[in-house]
Computed example of a mutant assay.
Amino acid sequence: MTEPTAASRKDDHLRLAAEQQPGIRAARTAFDDVTVRHHALSGISPKQVDLGVDVGPWRFPAPFYVNGMTGGTEKARALNRTLAQAAARAGVPMASGSVGIALDDPSTVETFTVIRQENPHGIVLANIGAGRSVDDARRAVELLAADGLQLHVNAVQETVMPEGSRDFSGWLGLIEQIAAALDDDGVPLVVKEVGFGLSARTLTQLRDAGVRLVDVAGTGGTDFARIENDRRDPVEDLSYLSAAAGFGLSTPAALLDAASLPSAVRHDLTVLASGGVRHPLDVMRCLALGARAVGVAGGFLSVALEHPDDDGATLATVMESWREQLVALHALFGAPSPTEFTGVDVVVTGDTADIVRAQTPSKEQM
């Protein structure tokens, strides 16, 4: 079997992620276990709502952003162009896909730099994977003239990936080094999962390593374990860790786990959320469970792929609609701002409630 190149792997990821999206929209997910309780006389005027929210040193105009997706190929360049154009039109922050391929192969640089070219004044985050060095982190930020860096942890994906690295022993130490170096540089760092969830224990480790911005990025969206198995030889490797599909913490479960942290730890962290966010109602659920802002990938990916040649206009219209719907939801539930949405009444049922009830307390919580 011919060894896949890094570029072909990126196109595989993009194709297989797109194929997963219709099922995500149609299926019931863990978000449907979360109900924001309705009180008929709690509403306020939409004019009283301000969707702006502080995330680290930034002021997001609304509590959602375009999460990191792709780069490294011509198809990815075209997609990043559309995403960046839409983000610029709508004033929505955007993260790139992992720029590790561009650090290793300069011929792919333009598939990422198109983001800053098309969005010269917006908030842009570069993205690299755990296991990279301080030098790589700084190069990634410089490459995009980025306002900050996402550093993704993807041990499950690497384990299932045919060509993945399976030595994770140095990751936490490297993250600590990067956090310290970027803090010295005045560059914010966000550590995120890629769809398997960050547990309370992991959040505590990250906080102790100097990380202050985290994205729990749970299951329910693009499943990279499933993607990596779909990339395997259908005869030779069909059964390789196939049970890992669906592995991990859902986004609501991860947010509830984060809320269980000791107050001293929780106080030091700004928690973001992503993973399977289908519509503004899911954004609202994340806010109610304690997220400061919410990353969206799959839902925006589908629109961008369907309208590749309109300079991001259709996707920007979708983003504006999300903003309008969030204003309406804030007014309905009596929350003048996203940070005040954490005060609404929430009911958690189904598998998510069972998981939260059944989880074993960490040593720090006992």
Rank of each mutant, 00 (worst) to 15 (best):
D147G: 12
S107W: 05
A137H: 11
I101H: 05
R139T: 12
L143E: 11
R138F: 12
I123M: 00
V134K: 04
A102T: 11
A102S: 09
E118Q: 13
G122N: 05
Q150S: 11
E118M: 09
A146S: 02
E110Q: 10
T113P: 10
T108N: 11
R132P: 07
V109G: 01
D136W: 11
A126S: 14
A130M: 09
I128K: 01
V109K: 13
R116K: 09
N119L: 09
D104K: 14
R132W: 10
L125F: 15
A146M: 05
A137Y: 11
V124K: 03
I123D: 00
I123C: 02
F112Q: 02
T108C: 14
V99Y: 08
R138W: 12
G122E: 00
S133A: 07
D135Q: 15
I128W: 02
D136Q: 14
L143M: 15
R116C: 06
T113Q: 05
S107K: 10
L103P: 07
I115R: 01
T108W: 09
S133K: 10
E110W: 08
G100L: 13
A146Y: 08
I115F: 03
L143N: 11
D147M: 04
I115E: 00
V134M: 06
D135C: 10
V114M: 04
S133E: 14
Q150M: 12
A145G: 15
S98C: 10
R139Y: 05
D105R: 11
L103N: 06
N119K: 02
A126M: 01
V134T: 14
T111S: 15
E110I: 00
R132F: 14
P120I: 07
R132V: 06
V134S: 09
E118C: 10
G122K: 00
D104Q: 13
V141N: 09
A130Q: 06
S133H: 13
F112W: 04
I128C: 07
H121W: 02
R132T: 13
V141A: 08
L143C: 12
I128A: 06
I123L: 12
G122A: 07
V114Q: 00
S107R: 15
I128H: 04
I123H: 00
S98F: 03
L151R: 01
D105N: 13
I101Q: 02
V114Y: 03
A102K: 04
I115W: 01
A145K: 15
V109H: 07
E110R: 09
H121N: 13
E142W: 05
G100N: 15
R139S: 15
E142K: 15
L151K: 00
Q117C: 02
V124G: 03
V134Q: 11
A126I: 01
L125Y: 12
G131N: 08
V99S: 15
D147T: 04
V99T: 14
D105C: 04
D136T: 07
E110C: 02
R132A: 06
V134E: 11
E118K: 02
V124E: 01
L103E: 04
L125S: 02
P120G: 04
D147H: 11
R139E: 13
A130I: 09
